[in-house]
Design a protein around this nucleic acid. Structure first.
Lengths: 328, 328
DNA sequence: TTGTACGCGTTATCAT
DNA sequence: ATGATAACGCGTACAA
């Protein structure tokens, strides 16, 4: 039985390759200030393969002062669908850039600094962040990507735009009086408020009355009640913006219960392009947030930031697409 | 302007607290073999707070030979919905145990060892793994959690059980001749095959004929064609198992196109409990895989494994629940 | 071109 | 009960 065997270090590689440990390091990091003959390099590579040597990230990090990782700081409220699904994609994208994603939850009281001081990542991704935090990280040489920022532009699609797209589409279909089915659940505030705001702004820009916002629970009964309110209103609401496809589904269900249908009696538009939306009747018109595109964009911003390249950062609206079907 | 300031180390804490570095380390890790007077401990804690000291994980890892991280090795085929959604939850759960999740994609050619040798995690989570890999990790003192294992029992719900539950439910509703709507897309093989197998086994156990498996694309037309085949068969198929809710939705849509309906003409049961399933008509009967429970279970297994506790590992079937609605 | 030597911050062994 | 000191593996200035 083999005794618990020692780790294979760069020194072992050096011995096998018949060079010094320094040379191994130079070759593996191809240090620009050193020129190693090709033959020597090959000997090192051969030894690496033979020994299955892999550098210990902890030692690298200790020495270089930073890890080849990206720290994702997640908020304490529940992540939306865009984020949950984008997470796996983000990991892949970053790995393509030689980076490993690790994530920690943001504790409201605790300062952000505690997290990156502990992990010393190459970059930090956060939904939002103090000016002070950002400054401190800059000084520490850590690239900081803030996903939502009113000043520098967002990486994440501004939720205002989501509401705006919905409102404009309904208006384009001839609807003059809109409703908004918003979640009563407080936990969705972070998404709900900007979406409602965006819809309201779009209506104002279009010269329409502000949408009639109704907070509903996610039940057919609550949805039916809202529908009744809208159709009986005068002037009647003819198009309604749903917070997401789930709420849109509830509205469709409520309409059926009342013997009404979309889009004739009430047009409905959702958000998220849930898989079932295309198979229901009427099929659901919706706004899709492409989470893979989202992940790719975030990864690109980080990679560019680390490379010192000024990230092009095209408008995030590209990540939003309108999926027109039958319900509106 | 402050010059790029030095890191705050345990030595700084020691100086402020008026003790030695060693004592600081003892207090912070409360080393069992040492008993430090309460007053000294407090002085150390105060100094830590005052200086906002946070231990550098890289240095810890280098010295202790392992990180406080869990390495998730993901397969190279696309992760299912259970996994994608469970990922965020898994991160949270592990953080609750003082662990940080980091993930790397499994490269088919590359040995698993390259990954954990580099990161030296406390534990590794993988979908599957060599016997040799497992052995090597055991020797290296790394806990290995294999999510699917035919021998030791799975952490992830066996997909065979999913198919079994679906088949048994339909049988309990009186259906004697079943169909299975499977994805034609090759990328779903890893889930598709065990689910079909489970359904087939359940049918055999129940004395039913094997389900008529039809591979379909995710379109209404393909679904309608399959439906036509089933209802015209003799004996007619009266209940059909869908690979997931999306395929179930396609079937429902196909039924409508043919002027038929569920469950009267053909009962349909799905998998995943997609959000829209409860609002469509007929509402969708389905098997739910609770991804949060899944994440919690995985985290528990890892935490128990690290603590040396023998994990209780109750049957993963708890993670599956039947959601009975109208469609079957 | 290659080798020697030091330090990164922490934990653990051994004295005191 | 506390302190001095030696590793952990790697990168790099400097010497040869």
């Amino acid at each position: 039985m083999a005794k618990a065997q020692r780790r294979i270090t760069a020194l072992d590689v050096a011995r096998v390759a018949g060079v010094s440990r320094t040379t191994v390091s130079y070759v593996l990091n191809d240090t620009p200030s050193q020129s190693i003959p090709q033959e020597t390099r090959q000997r090192v590579f051969d030894a690496v393969r033979e020994l299955n040597y892999v550098p210990l990230s902890a030692a690298r990090a200790l020495r270089r002062g930073r890890n080849d990782t990206v720290l994702l700081v997640t908020p304490d409220w529940p992540l939306g669908r865009l984020f949950s699904l984008g997470l796996a994609a983000l990991m892949d994208e970053l790995e393509g850039h030689g980076l490993t994603l690790l994530s920690r939850r943001q504790i409201p009281g605790r300062p952000l600094a505690a997290l990156w001081r502990e992990h010393t990542p190459a970059a930090v991704i956060a939904l939002s962040g103090d000016e002070a935090d950002e400054q401190a990280m800059r000084e520490a040489g850590i690239f900081f990507a803030r996903l939502t920022s009113s000043r520098t532009g967002d990486v994440v699609p501004p939720q205002e735009q989501v509401g705006g797209i919905q409102a404009r589409y309904l208006a384009a279909q001839g609807h003059r009086h809109l409703g908004y089915a918003a979640p009563a659940d407080e936990r969705f505030r972070a998404y709900r408020d900007p979406r409602v705001l965006g819809a309201r702004q779009a209506c104002r820009d279009l010269g329409l009355a502000a949408p009639d916002v109704v907070d509903i629970d996610l039940t057919r009964e609550a949805a039916a009640a809202a529908v009744r309110r809208w159709v009986n209103r005068s002037p009647a609401v003819t198009g309604v913006i749903a917070y997401n496809d789930e709420y849109a589904g509830a509205l469709l269900s409520g309409l059926r219960e009342l013997g009404l249908s979309a889009p004739g009696d009430l047009a409905v538009i959702g958000v998220d392009n849930e898989p079932l939306g295309r198979f229901i009747s009427p099929s659901l018109t919706t706004v899709e947030q492409n989470h893979e595109e989202f992940a790719a964009r975030v990864a690109q911003v980080v990679a560019d930031g680390l490379a010192g390249t000024t990230s092009p950062m095209p408008p995030p609206a590209d990540m939003l697409s309108l999926v027109v079907r039958e319900s509106a």
